[in-house]
Structures are given as C-alpha cells and as structure tokens.
Amino acid sequence: MTQQKPIIGCLALQGAVELHRPHVEACGATFKAVKTPAQFEEVDGFILPGGESTTMLKLIERFDLWDVLAKQFAKKPVWGICAGSILMAETVLVSLPSSSRWRASSEALAPPLSRGQALGSGKDEPQSGSHMDPRRLSVPSERRGDDRPVLQKSFGLLPITVQRNGYGRQIDSHHALIDGYEVSLIRAPVITAVDDSVEVLARHEDTPIWVKRGAYMASTFHPELTQDFPSPMHKAFIEIVRSSVQSAS
C-alpha cells in the first residue's frame, strides 16, 4: 500500500508561516499555507503559527472563520505555537501590557483564581504541581460593559491555562534548550496550569512549555526559527497527523 503524504496546513492569516515549510517537508509531508474554508478542507492537520494572538483572533472573527475552524479542529490534529497555543488554551489570562504583573481579568465573570495562580510573577513562583482550577473558568466571547476584553476568547482545545506575554515584553525574549535542540521564546505566553490529562513533553524554568493531549499539541516556543530541519516538534506533530490519517482510512 502506498502511503500518501500527509498535508499540513498552516493558518496564514498573519504570522510566521513560511518558516515551517522546510521543517514539514523534511518530515516527508506536504506544506500548505491556508486561509480560506476551501483550503482548510484539503489538509490533514493544522499548525496555528506564531504571530500576534490578538490580531489572529480579530481576523478569524472578521472573516467569519470561527465556526469553520472549530469544526475542522474537532476532526483533525492541531499544533499551536506561541500565539497559536493561546488560541488552543481553554483559559487565557491577559497580562498588563507594560509590566510583569498580571491583570486578574476574570473578576467580572467568575470567581478570581487564587492569588498564587492569578497574581504570581510566573518566574519567581513556578506553578509546578498546580492543576486546572476545578471551577473551570469558561471563556467568554462577549465583552464587558466598558468594552474592554476580559479573558481572551479561544478554541479551548487543550485544558491548560495560559498567561499571555508571561515572560514580559520583547526585551525578555530568550532562547531555551529542549533535549539539545535550541528554541526561541518570543514575547511568549506562560502555561500556568495544566489538567492532569495533559502530557507535559518539556519544561523550562519549571513551567510546561510543550504539551500534548490526544491529537492536540501546543508549544509556547518557536522551533521553526531554528534552521536544523526537521525539528523534534515538527517530527512529533507529523507523527500525530500520520496516525490520525491512518486511523481515518
């Protein structure tokens, strides 16, 4: 039986799209930049690339792609990188833009997270051992009366909590090593809590940075900025896509 090359679609509304091509191709898969519903149909798995999560959210809503994408994500593997991991997280906390303090943006909708979870500085108080808040903050799509976004909307594919820009601004961007493979954290989010069902594939400064559950994978770092092809993360994701294609046929 000849095995068809899986097609990996990278959501190309905005962000670092083309850098994935050599990694995906080095895994023996086909790479496609996708931005329309017809293109979404053609792919076997999605990469939600790095970029600006705020911008991507606005564009997904503006172009009426929310429901189409949600349906696609329900049946195909998805890997979210940095901004993409924010789109996948069940709970997204919004940090104060210019400082490392967190805005406990949940107060208007749900009981706030415990102080350690919501107000810790992330770096100094690693959330090791913490798990999902049992109250499971639901992610609202509506806005508060004063028109400020509260918890950021997301597809909620992975039961994790993510703090946007968790390390700070660009000046705090840095590299990290995962089993000898160098990766970049750029204005990266921090995963502050994971459900017990989520597998943590790598940690950095005691915080999970690469996680997976079933066919959904998220990384807060960028393996695509490293030009050793393919990255271990691309390999892992394309394995997920291959087995999903096989089990479907």
Binding site: Q14, A16, G51, H174, H175
Partner: peptide
C-alpha cells in the same frame, strides 16, 4: 548558557518574523 547555535534565527529578527502578514 548553551544556546547560541548559528542555525537559530536571532531573537530580534524572530520578533520581526512574527509580525509578517500584518
């Protein structure tokens, strides 16, 4: 301290990469 491979796009250009298509 073991980072700094020449194959890694510098962290500054990395942010520029994230701004593409915008």
């Amino acid at each position: 301290d073991k980072t700094g491979s020449p194959n890694v796009i510098n962290i500054k250009t990395g942010l520029a990469e994230m701004l593409k298509g915008g």
